[in-house]
């Protein structure tokens, strides 16, 4: 129960003066993911086989490794931005929202770093 005016409740703590950047980067990453994911699926499709030797040989090529790193970093970035929107939409408790946002960000950074590291390890590692 609050006796403050409806206008005060709507105005709240005022505009955050942010949101444009988030919105724009979410669109940019989604545009970038179109050719990257098409490339990823088509390249795997075109491989003669999906056994360990074939895939690591494919991943060791410079262009493949480069595009693969771009793909996983962009996907993780986009996933972080998208999950942030979903959490802001549906999780209303200030504490649980902040906690979830932090967890999602940590998780996405971890996934991005691990994936990029894995690609580099394969690309620069000695032939198995």
């Amino acid at each position: 129960m609050s006796l403050s005016s409806p206008l005060r409740q709507v105005l709240g703590t005022g505009p955050a003066h942010s949101g444009v950047h988030h919105w724009w980067v979410q669109r940019l990453t989604s545009i970038a993911l179109v050719p990257l994911s098409v490339w990823f699926v088509v390249s795997l499709w075109c491989l003669p086989g999906l056994d360990h030797a074939t895939v690591t040989a494919w991943l060791r090529q410079s262009w493949t490794a480069l595009l693969m790193i771009l793909f996983v970093l962009t996907a993780a970035w986009h996933s972080n931005l998208g999950l942030q929107v979903i959490i802001e939409d549906y999780v209303h408790g200030a504490g649980s929202r902040t906690l979830l946002l932090v967890l999602v960000r940590f998780l996405n950074v971890l996934v991005a770093a691990a994936a990029a590291f894995a690609v580099l390890k394969v690309a620069f590692g000695s032939a198995a």
Binding site: P15, H17, G19, E88
Partner: peptide, 14 residues
């Protein structure tokens, strides 16, 4: 525009 630049006020529109 300043008054609308906010993750909730405007950008909840999907």
């Amino acid at each position: 525009l300043d008054a609308l630049e906010d993750p909730y006020r405007l950008y909840r529109c999907h």
